[in-house]
């Protein structure tokens, strides 16, 4: 009986990953970030005001993030809710919420510091993509544990491998970050895409309307 309760809770907590759309969205965001790094490299070449253009690029990324979020909600309303039903964001106790904010802020600080170090260092540290991949991979691994979804374990391993490979190739500062971002994005998109296809085949909308 306890197992039934725990299973029901975990399945509901994993609801947001049932259709793969969240992963596709994250993948697209990684692709946008890779374009940011490529734009950075181009800006350096053209000697355009770096502060203004960096700010503009960051604003553009935030705008894309907002658009992706709205698109995700709209697509879920069309595809997921009629098939699986609707579940709002899970309840979180205040203490856990602040813990999550703290961990997210810490991870963001580490990643941003590494990126700044990579972009502005005279000798490019080749280990930055590996470390970034490891940090993101660890986050996905935690997600895998919480949601009990095996595919996140494979995704985490892929992210670490990509980081290691890019670090080994060491194509240079900005190109390394662009390369690892687009590869990470591809992994997320493939994982989400396969999940979405399986989900659409397996879950059909009910014949009668919801009461």
């Amino acid at each position: 009986m306890k197992n039934t309760v725990d299973t029901a809770i975990r399945r509901t907590q994993a609801y947001w990953y049932v259709d793969g759309l969240a992963e596709i969205t994250v993948g697209l965001l990684f692709v946008v970030i890779s374009l940011y790094f490529l734009a950075q490299a181009r800006i350096k070449t053209l000697s355009i005001n770096p502060i203004l253009t960096n700010f503009s690029l960051l604003v553009a990324i935030l705008l894309v993030l907002w658009v992706l979020r709205q698109a995700l909600q709209a697509i879920k309303a069309r595809l997921t809710y009629p098939r699986t039903g609707y579940v709002a964001a899970p309840h979180m106790q205040k203490s856990l919420r602040w813990q999550r904010y703290g961990i997210t802020a810490w991870l963001a600080l580490v990643c941003i510091s590494l990126v700044i170090l990579a972009l502005h260092s005279q000798t490019s540290p080749s280990w930055v993509p590996l470390l970034t991949g490891a940090v993101i991979g660890l986050t996905i691994l935690v997600l895998s544990y919480r949601s009990r979804l095996m595919r996140f374990v494979f995704l985490a391993c892929a992210l670490v491998l990509i980081g290691a490979l890019v670090s080994f190739i060491n194509p240079g500062q900005t190109l390394a970050m662009a390369l690892s971002s687009v590869a990470n994005g591809a992994c997320f998109i493939i994982s989400g895409g396969v999940t979405l296809v399986q989900y659409l085949h397996g879950a059909q909308p009910p014949a009668e309307a919801d009461l």
Partner: peptide, 24 residues
């Protein structure tokens, strides 16, 4: 048992649709 399952699902989700409960 059925109500226990319903409460388990609602405990995990902030707000849940009838269709989701029906499926689960």
């Amino acid at each position: 048992p059925s109500r226990m399952l319903i409460m388990s699902i609602l405990y995990a989700g902030e707000q849940v649709g009838f269709l989701y409960l029906l499926n689960e």
